[in-house]
């Protein structure tokens, strides 16, 4: 029993650390896609947001500000940069009615190249050290709750709590506000939305920009949680978030479940040697790593006939076609 608890208390923080950025970024994908714009640029936006956020945090690390304030500033910077960067995708796919895959591919290539380029020129290396440990060792009061305390409120990240708050707000926006209804309408039937006086272009811009903010912040969270330095990559995490979104069938609750599932698989892939039960199977780590992608393919193959993907996704809106 105590061994089980040990394993759980070892795994739970790791799973949460994976699950938070995964669900935040795929929620970002959801906002864009529910408004009707495919966003496979999540990876690039994460890199861009993560890069600038980390550079800022590194610059502030000597300033004497409290660590958690620096972390918060880094996260907000990531969100801001992500929004601006996603603006390029919105411009291409909404205003210019371009091919959304091509535009997103460009953003995915641009971000790592630019961040490595700048890092190498300014820091002389493509690695940017974080310069600090941003874990919260224990949350006052809450950490002394039995069982939950050690699992959720010790050695945690600020981003975890921020992530939970953002997730809740996002669901409220999407399902309980007029904006949310309009976003969903623009992804399903933009012409109908337009006929009711909704500015489809504007709503799609909002959808893509929200997606950029979440992915940019997710980029910073990624680096804070998994790395001690930034190397111009988020290791395919943005595409994993895309898989989470598809597996979650474009719904927040689905995303939460999918993110939990994929995060668990990811943690097992990285730490299975420390889990007594799995040690005996000795399945190579790569098998675990590719599992989320294979599962998504299988889901796509068997669910594509009644997919919950937004109906008007990927089509540039042209008012003249009504």
């Amino acid at each position: 029993m105590s061994e089980l608890f040990d394993t759980l208390s070892f795994l739970t923080p790791l799973i949460i650390a994976s699950m938070v950025p995964l669900s935040i970024v795929s929620l970002g994908g959801l906002f864009s896609e529910r408004s009707g714009v495919i966003n496979i640029a999540l990876e690039g936006i994460m890199v861009m947001g993560g890069f600038v956020g980390i550079v800022l945090m590194r610059a502030l690390s000597d300033s004497g500000l409290p660590l958690q304030l620096i972390a918060l500033l880094g996260l907000l910077t990531g969100a801001f940069i992500g929004t601006v960067y996603a603006g390029l995708h919105a411009f291409a796919s909404v205003t210019m009615k371009s091919n959304q895959i091509i535009s997103a591919t460009a953003l995915n290539l641009f971000a790592p190249a630019l961040s490595v380029f700048i890092a190498r020129i300014y820091f002389g290396t493509s690695n940017i050290n974080l310069g600090g440990n941003y874990t919260i060792s224990e949350v006052p009061v809450l950490s002394s709750i039995p069982i939950i305390g050690p699992l959720l409120f010790t050695n945690a990240y600020l981003s975890t709590y921020l992530g939970i708050a953002i997730f809740t707000i996002a669901i409220v926006i999407l399902y309980k506000t007029r904006l949310g209804l309009r976003i969903r309408a623009c992804g399903e039937n933009p012409h109908a939305a337009d006929s009711l006086g909704v500015n489809v272009y504007k709503i799609r811009y909002i959808g893509v920009l929200i997606s950029g903010a979440l992915a940019g912040m997710g980029g910073v969270i990624f680096v804070l949680s998994f790395a001690t330095r930034f190397q111009g990559t988020v290791s395919g995490f943005g595409f994993l978030a895309l898989a989470v979104m598809i597996f979650g069938q474009w719904k927040p609750r689905g995303i939460l479940l999918a993110a939990f599932f994929f995060a668990t698989v990811r943690v097992i892939a990285n730490a299975y040697t420390a889990i007594p039960v799995l040690q005996d199977f000795s399945i190579p780590t790569e098998i675990y790593s590719m599992l989320p992608y294979i599962i998504t393919l299988v889901v796509l193959a068997f669910a594509s006939k009644n997919s919950k993907a937004p109906a008007a996704i990927g089509e540039p809106y042209d008012a003249g076609k009504r």
Binding site: S98, I102, L107, F110
Partner: peptide, 19 residues
């Protein structure tokens, strides 16, 4: 890496090619 930046920019502008 500047070359990769240029390539990415070329792809982005090509996306606008129709325009």
């Amino acid at each position: 890496e500047l070359i990769e930046i240029i390539i990415a920019a070329i792809i982005y502008i090509s996306a606008l090619a129709l325009f």
